[in-house]
Amino acid sequence: MSSPEVSDAQLIARALVGDDRHAFAELVRRHQSSVRACLRKLTAGNHALADDLSQETFVLAWRNLKSFRQEARFSTWLYRIATNCWLADARKRKEELLGDRDEALGEAEADDTMVGGSAHGDHAGSSALKLDLERAMAVLTEGERAAIVQCYHNDLTHEEAAYVLDCPVGTVKTHVLRGKQKLKLALAAWAPTET
């Protein structure tokens, strides 16, 4: 097991030069949480699918490690692979994906009667907001959702998000703006009342 002070770059070099699988395992251990969280967000809370895609992401990362030129952080590069995996999967089985999500949301909604309520601050209100946000995110197009997740959830700059989404910075800004407009409409019940 590698010591914590070993940088990602050193681990990558070890994995590349010596085909060191232990070094790559350490990289997986370090980044699995953020990659899985990102994919959970992109898949609208489908944890099983997110974990499958996360696994695919790391396998692809291992196969393409030679092409990683250190022009971005390793985590950003992983987000890029993860987003591509998600987009490919979403296009492949769109209907199935929507069906699962609706079912999951329906079950969650049955247990929670405070959806869209005004109980800000307490736990029930917070989970209701989470659920509403998840549902609202599902309404967005793939590009808008990906842009919002990268810019907010993954805390990337517009430039980094453009690298992840492989599109111009202007497109990212447009996706974020349009996505937020749609989210505002969908989450209008959560807007603070003007006094």
Partner: peptide, 9 residues
């Protein structure tokens, strides 16, 4: 998770 990934390599 890491073990599963390493197994899938």
């Amino acid at each position: 998770f890491t073990a599963r990934v390493m197994h899938a390599l």
